[in-house]
Design a protein around this nucleic acid. Structure first.
Lengths: 158, 158
DNA sequence: GGCAATCGGTTTAATAATGCAACCACATGG
DNA sequence: CCATGTGGTTGCATTATTAAACCGATTGCC
């Protein structure tokens, strides 16, 4: 059996994330969910993808706990797809991707929208990584440390 | 011709980003580049992907300006793959994915590593989105605004 | 109530991407 | 030089993606 390799059991949290939302369409579906899409046809029209694929992706996103189905808010017999807390947690990922494009895209003039603070209408700040004491960190200022396995950890004295 | 749909011309910066790094392996290659991988065989061994695919991905990442080739730093006749500034710009995206897994993964105990501030050894802060005046913003506190097309924009008075 | 259109999919068949293994040229080490 | 390692390419089988046709249930409309 020569399947597409799964990263599900990988110890790297990035690989684990990509195993869930790392395919071609999933993040775009989540993006449109953030923009208010809720119904099957709404996603299909906005994304322009084949219905069978949308169907498969929605199912996968539900399985993974990113979307959930809910009764239609307009009272019809159909149902809607809504973001779970886990799905809403992807907002930062989407913003990071957006800001990366804004900063490095070769044709930035083709980018049509700007993410702004709703109350003031002003662009948001670029995401930045900080240490616990508030210093801004670049990639080189960080390392990976083996995670203390939750079990076998006796509360450290103070 | 029934090709995999390209998002290259899309006006959405997220779609444009995914067009470049939205496939199964690219971000993992970039991740390993951040972790110090430089040589073909190094990537292949760490990722465990087929060589032809690695070859194609590396080529694509170079075409898109995320990696570049450089003469081998150890003096051998082979060459190395190094991150460009555009590639290093993906650090925030990787961190966002990592933190999403850390927060929402169903089996967080399987995550093997922790991203820490190198100088203090302490975990970094979660990424958070802020307005220009420093307020922390949730998804609902933001909107998309049509971007002023660079041309036709007369400098706004003050 | 009847009927057409819409919604939310599934099925089918073609094309593209992925994965594995075999192969190959060049570099390097001894 | 000869054996091995590096960095790929090529061929073939398998899987994923796609467009298009189809289909039942729901809805809008008269």
């Amino acid at each position: 059996m020569v399947k597409r390799t799964s990263l599900e059991g990988d110890a790297c949290p990035i690989a684990r994330a990509l195993d869930v939302i790392g395919d071609w369409w999933s993040l775009l579906i989540v993006r449109d969910a953030f923009l208010g899409a809720r119904r099957f046809g709404e996603f299909q029209k906005k994304l322009g993808l084949a219905k069978n694929i949308l169907s498969a992706r929605l199912r996968a996103l539900i399985d993974r706990g990113i979307l959930a189905t809910a009764p239609a808010s307009d009272g019809s017999a159909y149902h809607e797809y809504v973001l779970t807390p886990k799905g809403r947690g992807l907002f930062t990922v989407l913003v990071a991707l957006r800001q990366w494009s804004e900063q490095f895209d070769d044709r930035p003039d083709e980018i049509g929208t700007l993410l702004v603070d709703r109350s003031k209408g002003k662009p948001v700040r670029p995401l930045a990584l900080h240490s616990q004491d508030g210093r801004q960190l670049a990639a080189d200022d960080t390392t990976l440390k083996p995670r203390p396995s939750a079990r076998n950890v006796r509360r450290a004295p103070a």
